[in-house]
Design a protein around this nucleic acid. Sequence first.
DNA 1: GGCGAAGCGGAAGTGAAATTCCGCTTTCGC
DNA 2: GCGAAAGCGGAATTTCACTTCCGCTTCGCC
Lengths: 201, 201
Amino acid sequence: MAVDTEDAGARRTRRDVQRNMERVLQAAQELFAERGPDVKMEDVARRAGVGIGTIYRRFPSKEQLFAAVSAVACQHTRHCLAQAADDAHDPLEKLRAIILAQYRQSARQAALIDLRPDPSGVPPDLDRPGLYASIHTLLARVIAAGQRQGSIRSGDAQMLAAICLELLSPRTVQNLSRLADDDVDAAADQVVGFLTAGLRS
Amino acid sequence: MAVDTEDAGARRTRRDVQRNMERVLQAAQELFAERGPDVKMEDVARRAGVGIGTIYRRFPSKEQLFAAVSAVACQHTRHCLAQAADDAHDPLEKLRAIILAQYRQSARQAALIDLRPDPSGVPPDLDRPGLYASIHTLLARVIAAGQRQGSIRSGDAQMLAAICLELLSPRTVQNLSRLADDDVDAAADQVVGFLTAGLRS
DNA sequence: GGCGAAGCGGAAGTGAAATTCCGCTTTCGC
DNA sequence: GCGAAAGCGGAATTTCACTTCCGCTTCGCC
């Protein structure tokens, strides 16, 4: 953030610094998405085309690097989902749009960070709970709207939103997409069908 | 397995050995469930109340320890779910029973091993795919039966089963249970409602 | 109770990955 | 173009968890 701002009299941020940080974030984001949080810093450096030291100049630890990556990716996800919801009018349509957006997002390997509350304690630097909550809130609102309007059955909107959200977790998206021959749209459709109709005939 | 069998003329298995192995498996199972596969062997040893060497005497590596733990837990889960399905008559009832069984299981901290196919490659010693498949098959069969009988809407039974299974993953069970004030039965009920009725009113 | 086999604990060894450090290079402002 | 400040690369260091090893203890049998 704020890479271009400068104090009076201070030198402008060097061009190469900005370029390198972008490369590092990009590489980290890709590798994190591809292989989970256990990637080696060396690999990140290699893919970014920089030395390890360069990473550590801006990100004091691996954890903080991934917190930064996650924050960016999640901001982006949040934005996409909100956008999708805005573009649709009917609550059920909004839900469909959100799901589709998330599935397409994952297909592009972006946004693969799992935001769900992590029972294994040790909260990292990243404000996962907050990011999770913001998406959860979005869903809960849409569902509540549907309930008021009558198109969605009554029930604890928080819980219904949480259940939907589980079907949007990166892992789930990947699993289901694979089962649909990597056709994410098809997978999303199935989930939407499940969501709206349930199993009963 | 087969801890009590003995070759002719061989000394009986020492009592302490059996006791220790049980403690180790118990501790490993708890910790694995609580904190995922990144627990330290030292922690397992401490919780089990034995030295690290004792673990290594029977389990040549961390991976094999967890394979053993997983195998036991999954066998158990599989058995419980199959049992639950058997006890019910109607396919929808079977599904309800399966879900409830899994939620109760998780509440007891058992069976928290995530069997879903892991995209991050490197298949461990444990036959996760096989264990996952066996539960997936169980679900798919129940769903297909419901479809034949007419109580479940038509659609790709494999995919529907996979979606259900996602809602049974340990992480999901934990998240949703927490949201229901740790009342697993309530959480399971919500999921069942979602499953059978969907969102539409 | 005594003997020997088997098991135990946990300190030391090992290896892989994270992090530091510093001489060399690049960039910016003039 | 030049000088200084900032950044860079990556070898060396540190850290940290897995695994080994061996002197001491416990168990089962007679």
